[in-house]
Structures are given as structure tokens and as C-alpha cells.
């Protein structure tokens, strides 16, 4: 069964310049226990997609449409507030980018984890407290008991991110959404947090949706990759296939632009130009203004996804 089953999702925002289409008709399916990475640059629509999955965008200005939009069998688009609230944190939990601003500064860490547990589960305060402590211990926070009584500003970014992961796991969600969970952290802490997320995903048997701009994070953590650009999915497939045999020119260019581990000073392979402006997107394939292989068809219309391998699809006119 698909835990996440989305087709033809669009998200647009009403802004001064008019309607800005951030996500322009994407489909996404995630199986139980599967780990999927959504990779893209700023303006690709990856974070908006992630926020839309829990309906966390303010509507209006946001407007969401979809052919199908189900999470664990619930129609997200038609669900009322009560249904959405009971889904959030319980069925699908989220870890955010900046742990320093993700906690309410006037409540203790303990309060905020206990509050999450008691929102979804009928347990006493003491039980919730014991559970919160063991969760903190599980995310490798020493002195978990003391940390329960700390305020957010008393902890480092890495510790807060661990606490946020503990909080997200507190109701045993089936899906963990992680939106750039390591971007705001130091290099060594990043690696630790990624490893922790991977371990917990296996241990809890959750699905993981990892949203990131960093191909290194993708290479480290997920089984399947969805490459987004300009609000559309360019390519998706198993992580080895994407790294070994990328078929879309954008994916290929992105992989080439990684500085890599080669020795010595050298020029990097760059992608000319800049990401498209969502308020004024190019016609046809959003990548065509930067694509070396662009043809006239690319300027006119968006190609459909075609299978290029086992569970491996790409949307490029050259592959049609």
C-alpha cells in the first residue's frame, strides 16, 4: 500500500505579482518503510511540497489542488481541521530545518515533548514524561532527565535537532518528513544527525521523506530519489540509478557540479544561468534555458515522464 499517494499536485500562492505556481503538477508515491529523497534547489518546490503534505501552508495565500492527495488512506485535500490535526504528529511527523527557532522559547523541552505525546495518546503526565526521557536518551542525549527541564536557548543546535527528532518520534509516526534537517548544523553534527535519522527509520519501520538541496545527504540516506526543478519532477528512480545513470540533463549537470573528492585545485563544472523565477517561469521544460541539449520542443511544452529503467523515470524530450 502506498502510504503517500499524490498525483497532479499543484500549489500556488497569491502574491503581488499575481499567481505564483510553486509546485506545478507533481506525483509522488511512497511505500510503507521506504525512504525517499526529494532533492532540488531553491525555488524547486521541494519544501512547499513537504509543507503541503501536512497542509501546513497558510491557505490563502496558498492554494492546493490535486488529482489525488492521500496520506495513509486519508484524503488530505478534503479533510477537516480535526482530521488533519489528528494526522499531524501521529501518522506523519516532521523535522524542520532550523532547530533554533523550532521550539517555543518560553516552554521547556520536556513540556513541548510531553504536550505532543498527550495530544495524541491517552497517557498520564508522568507516563508521558518517562517516555519523553527515554526518547531523549534514544536520540543520544546524555542527561536526558536534565534536558527535559531546559529551555530551548540553553541547548546547542545539534542538541535541539536531536530533541526535535525525539519529539517527532514521540507518537510513533508511520512517516517522518525531514525538511533540510541538517542544513543549519555544523558538518560533524550533520553526519551524526543523518546517521541517527537512518537508524531510527529502520528501528521504527517508518517511511522517510528527506527534503534536501544536498546530493551528499541523498547519497547518505535514501533508497529512492525524486529530482525537482522549477516546481516539476525532472527525474525519479532508485538512488544507485540516479547516481550511476542519471538520464535527465538537469540531474546529470547537478551531479557534475558537486565539487567532488578529486585532489588539486581545479575548475568545477558549473550550470550556467540561475534557477527559474517561480513568478515568471519559462515555457515548456523549466530547465531549457540552462540546458545544453535544449531543442525547440523543450521551449514549447513540458514532456511527460517516461520509464528509462526499473522504477526509473525521467521527463525529457530527448528521452521520448
Amino acid at each position: 500500500m502506498n502510504l503517500v499517494d499524490i498525483s497532479e499536485l499543484t500549489v500556488s500562492f497569491r502574491q503581488h505579482e499575481g499567481l505564483v505556481q510553486a509546485v506545478r503538477g507533481i506525483s509522488l508515491r511512497v511505500d510503507a518503510g521506504e525512504s525517499v529523497g526529494i532533492v532540488g534547489e531553491s525555488g524547486s518546490g521541494k519544501s512547499v511540497t513537504c509543507m503541503a503534505m501536512l497542509r501546513l501552508l497558510r491557505e490563502p495565500p496558498a492554494r492546493i489542488t490535486a488529482g489525488k492527495f492521500e496520506i495513509a488512506g486519508t484524503d488530505i485535500l478534503r479533510a477537516d481541521n480535526r482530521t488533519l490535526a489528528s494526522l499531524r504528529g501521529r501518522v506523519a511527523a516532521m523535522v524542520f530545518q532550523d532547530p533554533m527557532t523550532a521550539f517555543d522559547p518560553v516552554f521547556t523541552i520536556g513540556h513541548q515533548i510531553i504536550e505532543t505525546i498527550r495530544t495524541h495518546r491517552n497517557v498520564s503526565k508522568a507516563e508521558a514524561r518517562a517516555e519523553a526521557e527515554s526518547l531523549l536518551r534514544r536520540v543520544e542525549i546524555k542527561q536526558a532527565k536534565d534536558v527535559l527541564g531546559y529551555y530551548p536557548h540553553q541547548l546547542s543546535g545539534g542538541m535541539l535537532q536531536r530533541a526535535m527528532i525525539a519529539m517527532a518520534l514521540s507518537c510513533r509516526p508511520q512517516i517522518l518528513l525531514a525538511d533540510e534537517p541538517t542544513t543549519a548544523l555544523d558538518v560533524t553534527i550533520q553526519a551524526q544527525i543523518l546517521q541517527l535519522i537512518k537508524e531510527l527509520q529502520a528501528e521504527f519501520g517508518m517511511s522517510l521523506i528527506m527534503v534536501t538541496h544536498d546530493l551528499g545527504v541523498i547519497a547518505e540516506t535514501v533508497d529512492r530519489v525524486v529530482v525537482m526543478y522549477g516546481g516539476r519532477v525532472m527525474e525519479q528512480g532508485p538512488v544507485e540509478a540516479i547516481f550511476d545513470d542519471p538520464r535527465h540533463p538537469y540531474t546529470q549537470a547537478l551531479l557534475r557540479s558537486i565539487p567532488g573528492h578529486a585532489g588539486g585545485r581545479r575548475r568545477l563544472t558549473e550550470i550556467k544561468g540561475a534557477s527559474p523565477n517561480p513568478a515568471n517561469p519559462p515555457t515548456g521544460c523549466p530547465f531549457h534555458p540552462r540546458c545544453a541539449a535544449a531543442e525547440s520542443a523543450c521551449r514549447e511544452s513540458m514532456p511527460v515522464m517516461v520509464a528509462v529503467g526499473a522504477r526509473h523515470d525521467a521527463a525529457c524530450w530527448r528521452l521520448q
Partner: peptide, 9 residues
């Protein structure tokens, strides 16, 4: 962004 980082480097 990744694709722009290389340009600046």
C-alpha cells in the same frame, strides 16, 4: 544553490 556554487567558485 549547488548549481550556482560552482559558478562562484
Amino acid at each position: 544553490d549547488v548549481s550556482v556554487k560552482a559558478q562562484i567558485i
